[in-house]
Amino acid sequence: MHIPNSHATRKPFLSLERKRSLSGWAFLSVAACLIIWLNFYPMVRGFIIALHTGAGANMTLSNPIYRNFARLFEDPQFRQTVSTTFLYLIVQVPIMLVLALILASMLNQPSLKGKAIFRTAIFLPCAVGLVAYALIFRQMFAHDGLINSVLIGIGVFETGHNWLNSVWSARLVIIIGLLWRWTGFATVLYLAGLQNIDRSIYEAAKIDGAGIFQQFWKITIPLLSPIILLTAIMSTNGTLQLFDESMNLTGGRPGMSTMTMSHYIYQTAFVHSPNLSYASAMSFAIFIFVAVLALIQIKVGDKR
């Protein structure tokens, strides 16, 4: 008969439990280190850069140390890009979320015919790259573009409106573009959420005499509220970082009236005479905006 060797009876250096836990750590270590190294560390580093002036090897602490941050409040161009970005946020995000809610609850009706076609059509813009769609909209709204041809054709304008060359219509085009590109995405998220809601709740509500609008307000909205919160945070975050559209749809023009914060930071940091430390201070401001708005949204969302 085989006698187990003495090693097995001795307590091993690593118990099975500990060994398992260690292999778990091994599995996640690469990803965790990368996030710390490439997200958290640069965040801190960016703050430190913002406390300096000069470039390259000649970087010195600025005097006073908060100089770059103080400059934020005196820079009319920065203020302009902040208010433009917030304008996009305040106008586009609510319209998009309401539209997406309506579309998703329609697509979720069991009686709807041709569901697959509608769904594919509405999701399709999500598959288009940001630069590509920015160019498509730029062409559509160009002075000699399609929109003007159509509007002249049906007699709205005599000569066409120069959409991208006047402040408010250029901003409007960016908002229309954003709505086109992102509404489908929010609809996907809501539809996924709606499919997790038991249909019998709606049946019961119908029997109790609740109309379609009551069902929407009393069932759909409350049950979807975690996802509504998620989309609100995601789209706020995304809009505050808007870059591709500002860069390619309008180029920030006319003047700087459609330029977003990210675009201005990019310009300050990498175009003309680069000023990395001031750009870093602006970057930090975006971070504060995102963090504060996310906190507010989470607070409001929790109360409901």
Partner: peptide
């Protein structure tokens, strides 16, 4: 803790990332 990184906008880290 790692989830907090989703709150960091790319614009806020692009300059240090560029230097790195």
């Amino acid at each position: 803790i790692l989830l907090l990184s989703m709150m960091i906008p790319f614009a806020a880290v692009m300059i240090p990332l560029f230097q790195l």
